[in-house]
Design a protein around this nucleic acid. Structure first.
Lengths: 111, 111
DNA sequence: GAGTTCTACAACCATCTGGTTGTACGTTAG
DNA sequence: CTAACGTACAACCAGATGGTTGTAGAACTC
């Protein structure tokens, strides 16, 4: 159950999550899809700024945009989120192996 | 089981995770503690650069440094990692509530 | 004591980031 | 058709980030 993701993908993923506005947008679009302007209405920043945040989330694969008339509906996609969580879980797994280092000796490296 | 963390803490956490070198350092120090120079030996970058990465991990609470003679041993602390994972899990939970939006109707808005 | 090792920290630099404003264009409403 | 709305995108700016080199101090080694 080793998670194999290119570095750049993970970089963009965690980077995207490292901003409170983006986490909020993600939270909001988890349950409902919302247009960019609908999202932007609830923040202090400009529309363009929110647009950029959505773009960051989109390029990280955390969100998808679908055209509907003149507006673009944004909805979260939990797949990448699950991957990020798996990466963290895997790191934690290493910690648990900390005191049972016999395993490392008994199972020879495969590559 | 709501995760309550100040935004800035989460920012630093995910920010720290958004770099392959830092994730690697984290991985390495999960199982063993290593001095900064021992860590630095395995990367192309300068010692000072590695030192900075460790500092970022430390300020995110992902790593702790303990003095041992002239060297500082770095070891990972999985606590913050678990918190980050919990935040992601909570976000995913929202997704699952997506189709049971009756809840939103039944509980009137509080603000 | 002298030299080496490990670390800390400052200064500097290029690039990225998060924000802004302005312009342009497709879409909906009157 | 015209006006308003929703979006896209470029240009610009201040500050953060990731890297460098250089200097200095504390701790080992000899």
């Amino acid at each position: 159950m080793v998670v194999e993701l290119p570095d750049s993908t993970l970089d963009r993923l965690f980077r995207a999550l490292a901003d409170p506005s983006r986490r909020d947008i993600l939270r909001r679009t988890m349950t409902t899809s919302a247009s960019v302007s609908a999202l932007a209405a609830d923040y202090e920043m400009s529309f363009a700024a929110v647009q950029k945040h959505v773009a960051v989330l989109e390029s990280a694969g955390l969100v998808r945009k679908t055209a509907k008339g003149r507006e673009r509906l944004v909805r979260a996609d939990p797949a990448q989120l699950a991957r990020a969580r798996a990466v963290l879980a895997e790191l934690e797994t290493l910690w648990h192996a900390r005191f049972s280092q016999l395993d490392a000796v008994l199972s020879p490296p495969k590559e």
